[in-house]
Design a protein around this nucleic acid. Structure first.
Lengths: 117, 117
DNA sequence: CCCGTACTACGATGCCTATCGTACGAGTCG
DNA sequence: CGACTCGTACGATAGGCATCGTAGTACGGG
């Protein structure tokens, strides 16, 4: 198999047609979650939850990842003890062409403006 | 003066640099407010609050317009008894190029997909 | 089999917010 | 002036949500 040892426990994801723009916007309107998505997009690959060093407890981290998953922004799958997170770029681009890139660009611009020199 | 009879009472707006992406996304994550913005964009001009026929009371309508104003999405000005609302397209485009159009396109696509035949 | 790691579930808490109703202020028109 | 329209302010309410802490489950390795 190419798929390497995916655990049996799987998580509920919305189908592509069930993804709602309002839900996506709400998910991204939280700075913590926007940061997570920016990091996922930058890496362009799946990342484990523990890779992120967020200034909140693990409980809260779990909560944020669930919001992102249930809104359709990311997909999650267990791989051993780790839970891997990946952007649902294809689905989002299919539903809302260009939106994700636009949002990421906007976030990058704001980060540069606020955090930068 | 070219400005025609703008009432003296004016409303607090965030400056362009104070507009935050998270705030904009949060403002647009409410279906009611997204609808308002879509209508403003479609008309391409200022509209009075009473032009909108929303399924909520006037109190709630006032609340939504205030959220949109305070997040920097719209500008409001009194003209007689009417309060005119206009999209801050220039400011948003200046901060986040292309974002507004992307969002409107995404909203239109979703509306066509859900409401359409 | 036992332990450590990674993540979850659940309950609590305090804040934010969408909604309403009623009472009020500002402006226009007769 | 008086009446009417437009929108606001304020209080109340109910639900959502970001956060935490603690206790628990799943998996992999010694």
């Amino acid at each position: 198999m190419t798929s390497p040892a995916v655990s049996s426990r799987d998580l509920p994801h919305p189908a592509r047609e069930e993804i709602r723009l309002e839900g996506v916007l709400h998910a991204l309107s939280d700075p913590m979650r926007l940061q997570i998505v920016r990091e996922l997009a930058a890496v362009g690959d799946e990342l484990s939850c523990s890779h992120f060093d967020l200034p909140v407890t693990k409980s809260t981290t779990t909560h944020h990842f669930r919001v992102l998953r249930e809104s359709g922004v990311i997909q999650q799958v267990y791989r051993g003890t780790a839970k891997m997170n990946g952007l649902r770029k294809d689905d989002l681009d299919g539903l809302f062409p260009g939106l994700l890139d636009c949002l990421l660009d906007a976030a990058a611009r704001q980060a540069a403006r606020l955090g930068g020199a």
